[in-house]
Amino acid sequence: MLELFGTEVNLAPIWLTLEVATMTTLILLVVGTPLAWWMAQMRSSNKVLLEALVALPLVLPPTVLGFYLLIVFNPTGPVTEFLRWFGFEGQLTFSKTGLVIGSVFYSLPFAVQPLMHAFEAIPHRLLDAAATLRASFLDRFRTIVLPLSRRGILIAATLTFAHTVGEFGVVLMVGGNIPGETRMVSIDIFDHVESMEYTQAHLLSGMMLVFSLAVLMLVYGMNRRFGVKVG
């Protein structure tokens, strides 16, 4: 609890939101990078299907995605059973793990699309040149692809983070609204408004506004300073 302007504000939803957004961003950078690379290299017509699948969360109502995830995350369903094999305890629905997995799906296009475009913009000859200079694939990826995609990676991370912070529908469907466990800040604000607690809603919204602006400015500032000097 934090007292601000004489009003008590529960910070738990904010911390939870930041935690989920950070984890989602990290997971998506790790998972999204090979996926985006694979898609960027694809020449076959399967690419269209894959691109459409990745972009699906952009057009699908979040509640639809949330609904399907809820079905799949069923505590006695195959996905949960499968995870139990690896020592997973508890359940996916109405838990933080579920929130993160749901967010990963929901924010997938925001990570994969900028990464894919960054990878596609790298002239293939540079990788060929590196190969003739005895660099292995991972070596080329680390020394040529990643540095030349810095901007794309930065944009992917920022968009993913911001988008996860702002999500509502998926979070509500998958996570429910358990105070201290799955209540994220967007739902908290909604609750405050519902119960006419405009002061709390104001404070939380204001904090989110300042925070979001600060993060974006930091990122674009970094982008400007370390921007890659290409054409």
Partner: peptide, 14 residues
């Protein structure tokens, strides 16, 4: 054990 020189040099821009 080959060297390769490309049409547009293909130098690493970074």
């Amino acid at each position: 054990d080959i060297g390769f020189v490309f049409q547009d040099a293909a130098l690493f821009p970074h």
